[in-house]
């Protein structure tokens, strides 16, 4: 998110965004927790589903976020190092509450999971472990495409779609309407996440939804 998150959240709520995903991407590497006060202020602006991630390591962390109004939590690092914790979280809060961030990048040995711990984990192994934990959702980010605004990583998205039937939010690469057309015509994904296009272009979420509706992609207007 660029700028003041609370103001941005207010705008998104007014524009009828279908869901807000808010991730503090530095929480784990900076060895701190997400700023609950800021998250609470963001959630106050929203009458839509909200997924929050960053630095989640305990059941108490999840409870802190749900208590202030999050619907789902997004976990990555803890999922990489401790899949038993993910099982425990799913047993406690249900599959629908536990989303897993899948930050994938391509290597000569296939897709791997990007992380700051130098853990060498293939996309396949990671996704399969998380399926076995019965998680509810994957937030799939193409590290190669994220922020580039030059199109979605169709190959990666189809790759993951083929190995799971857990819902996927595809993200990373949307820069113009054509990219969204391509995403929904060339993959079976049902949800897309975007940020840069709303920060750095004139497009609003509604513009994109209107265009998708024209090509008969079911969207909520």
């Amino acid at each position: 998110m660029v700028g003041n998150p609370v103001q941005v959240a207010r705008v998104y709520n007014n524009r009828g965004v279908d869901e807000l995903v808010f991730i503090d991407i530095f929480a784990t590497t900076q060895k701190r927790k997400i700023n609950l006060k800021l998250v609470a202020d963001v959630i106050k602006e929203c009458y839509m589903p909200i997924a929050i991630g960053g630095g989640i390591e305990t059941i108490a962390d999840i409870n802190d976020l749900l208590k202030i109004g999050a619907d789902k939590v997004i976990i990555k690092t803890k999922a990489l190092v401790d899949s038993d914790f993910i099982k425990e979280a799913v047993a406690f809060y249900g599959s629908q509450c536990i989303s897993i961030a899948v930050d994938a990048y391509k290597t000569s040995e296939g897709y791997k999971i990007f992380n700051h711990l130098d853990i060498d984990k293939s996309l396949d192994d990671y996704v399969q472990e998380m399926i076995d934990c019965k998680v509810g959702e994957f937030v799939l980010v193409s590290v190669d495409k994220d922020g580039m605004m030059n199109g979605f990583d169709i190959e990666l998205i189809n790759y993951v779609e083929n190995i799971t039937n857990i819902p996927i939010i595809a993200s990373g690469g949307g820069g113009n309407i054509e990219h969204y057309n391509e995403l929904f015509s060339k993959t079976n994904v049902l949800a897309v996440g975007s940020a840069s296009i709303f920060h750095f272009t004139q497009y609003t979420p509604l513009d994109i939804k209107n265009e998708l509706k024209k090509i008969n992609i079911p969207v909520r207007i």
Partner: peptide, 16 residues
């Protein structure tokens, strides 16, 4: 009863 989500519900009620 410790099963989450209470804040959002109350926020909507406050709004109303």
């Amino acid at each position: 009863y410790g099963m989450g989500n209470v804040a959002s519900v109350q926020k909507a009620l406050n709004f109303l």
